[in-house]
Design a protein around this nucleic acid. Structure first.
Lengths: 202, 202
DNA sequence: ATCCCGGATGTCACTTGGTGCCATCACCCT
DNA sequence: AGGGTGATGGCACCAAGTGACATCCGGGAT
């Protein structure tokens, strides 16, 4: 299981507090287990909260809604990608800067292949969750586009590069989930991008 | 206002029935007006139903949920695009077949510019509606990909062409909404696609 | 030691979206 | 005349969110 920021902080020598530590992490863990076992629809927020030793009201203090418990990692992903784009070698083109994000993202996912598989299975089984996933990708693309603009790339080209890059990531991620090699995400992204270049120019 | 299928059928010589005709059309109309005037969140389904002379329960017989009342056209859009792809000249490449869809889609939207503007304003103001829009585009892309496969195009290339085409449509549509020329959608789509080719190969 | 403050949690009431079930009631067909 | 049909209304109910307030313990200030 991936540790939440809170979990790490408390693990690192914090004193025993009044409440069991890592409430958000426990909620995420409960969600993964229960959603996968009995389905998203058939799991109530009260179920999740009880499984984590909390109440409904407290769940909504950590996550703005029931779907969000599966998407807490989206912010981190966005930060990673944006930083990679921002830190790409000065003067390189839009797509090259974009691809710097590929590497950063692929690396962080290699240790989470089995986690990602379960999560993907849950999401694939429910349209509400797919909607949330799509809007997270949209947000990601728009942030990456902003990072490209920051590098002096014209807005239109930045948007095209960013949205296409995220689209490629999405597709490659789906292929990566469907296979068994946890390290194969980066090559899949590059292959997909090459394939797109081919399709567009043929 | 765009007439719903029911409205057209009844308009074409149907006899007076027990109920006021075009219930779904009235609900859509009410949604456009009320969502725009007082916001999506601050409009209840009961408000919409009352405005159309119906009850909450009846609303949910026409639309599976509150968001869906703004997306009844998605099916028609998908049919149009898929038919265009299927009917494209035999033997032409993936992207050329895709672009046949561009023309079909652009044409149907030229008469709905002001409608589309209002609708876009409503959607832009609410994340729930943006999510629904994104999943409709996803569904559109996947159907177009299937239509491309039907033409003998390999699955991977079909997916890339379809998702990219829909992405381009999405971007061009946003630009079209932001301007005043109701006929300019098709050129915008082609320009955006050309721009993408340039970004990808530079 | 006492007091107070702050922050994480619990409790409760309430609105709204969404659904299942049954009643109604005009129209149509035989 | 009578029965079927289909769109609608009414009602009860569950689950997702939300706002307001109470609680309760640890830590710091006096």
């Amino acid at each position: 299981m991936v540790m939440s920021p809170g979990a790490i902080a408390r693990y690192a020598g914090a004193v025993m507090s009044r409440w069991k530590p890592d409430a958000d992490g426990r909620l995420i863990e409960a969600a993964l287990v229960l959603f996968d076992r009995q389905g998203y629809e058939d799991t109530t927020v009260a179920d999740l909260a009880a499984s984590a030793g909390l109440t409904r009201r407290t769940f909504f203090r950590y996550f703005s809604d029931k779907r969000e418990v599966l998407f807490s990692g989206a912010g981190e992903l966005e930060r990673l990608w944006v930083n990679a784009v921002t830190g790409a070698p000065k003067g390189c083109g839009a797509m090259v800067a974009m691809e710097a994000g590929f590497a950063a993202v692929a690396e962080v996912f290699t240790e989470r292949h089995s986690f990602a598989k379960i999560r993907a299975r849950i999401i694939a089984a429910n349209p509400e969750l797919q909607e949330r996933e799509l809007i997270k990708l949209e947000k990601l693309a728009s942030s990456v586009a902003a990072a490209l603009e920051e590098r002096g790339i014209e807005a239109g080209r930045a948007a095209l590069a960013a949205y296409t890059g995220v689209q490629i990531f999405h597709l490659a991620f789906a292929r990566w989930i469907a296979q068994d090699d946890p390290g194969g995400l980066l090559p899949l992204m590059h292959e997909s991008l090459e394939e797109l270049r081919e399709v567009l120019t043929s």
